[in-house]
Amino acid sequence: MSDYLITFLGIYFLCLFKFIAGPLLGIAAGYGLWEIVVVTVSGMMTSVLFFTFLGEWFKKNWSGFTKKEKKKFTRRTRGIIKVWQKFGVFGIAFLTPVILTPIGGTVVLTSFGIKKRKIILSMLISGLFWSIIMGISIEKLLEIPLFKNLWT
């Protein structure tokens, strides 16, 4: 396998769990903006699709593995509920790449009983938006002489 494909698959795999890995590692690998967008969004959307379609099963069966009762209203869950009440599906999807993980955002939306199609569409729009914004921002940030000298 070529180095390019191995690098692409490595970044893709990390994007399954952490969105920011795509733009950061894409820039480090010398990818252009559209390569960064493709690898980041494809990794995120793989997680979204997986957990959207298997989310109900995980929700039902995961409770059997956990013995300890967890607090239902933590600081984090209260924050998620506030975002949900103010902005709905698109608010959660918008915050997923920067605050939550692709898995976390999908699980939250699945637990609220949102239709699969709406979850996938909102996460796709959010992923495209944030991957473009982060890719451009990191490129511009590295044009600043201080950071350019540190990078090379």
Rank of each mutant, 00 (worst) to 15 (best):
F51S: 07
M45G: 05
I125F: 14
K86G: 11
K59S: 12
G104Q: 10
S63Y: 08
T52P: 07
E139M: 00
S63R: 15
I114K: 15
L9M: 08
F112G: 11
V89G: 06
G55E: 13
R76Q: 13
M45H: 13
I136R: 00
L14Q: 07
L14Y: 10
F19S: 06
R78S: 01
E139Q: 00
G43T: 06
K116H: 14
T96Q: 05
K68R: 05
V89M: 12
F73Q: 02
I6A: 12
T46L: 03
I114E: 15
V83K: 01
I99C: 05
I133Y: 09
K86F: 15
P102D: 15
L25D: 08
G105N: 05
I120W: 15
L9F: 12
K115E: 15
I6F: 09
Y31G: 02
T77Q: 12
W34C: 01
G104M: 07
F87P: 01
S122P: 04
W57S: 14
T52E: 14
W62V: 00
T66C: 09
I81M: 04
T152N: 13
M123A: 11
F73V: 07
F58I: 11
N149F: 06
F90L: 09
K115M: 11
P23N: 08
T106I: 05
K118T: 08
S111N: 14
L141R: 01
I132W: 08
S2W: 05
Y31F: 14
T101V: 00
L16T: 00
I27Q: 05
G105S: 03
V108S: 12
L146P: 05
G32L: 04
G105W: 14
F8G: 01
G79F: 13
T77K: 03
V37L: 08
F19M: 06
F19E: 14
E143P: 02
K68N: 09
F50Y: 11
I92L: 12
G30V: 10
I20P: 04
E69T: 02
T46S: 07
I80Y: 14
S122R: 03
S47G: 03
P23C: 05
T106K: 03
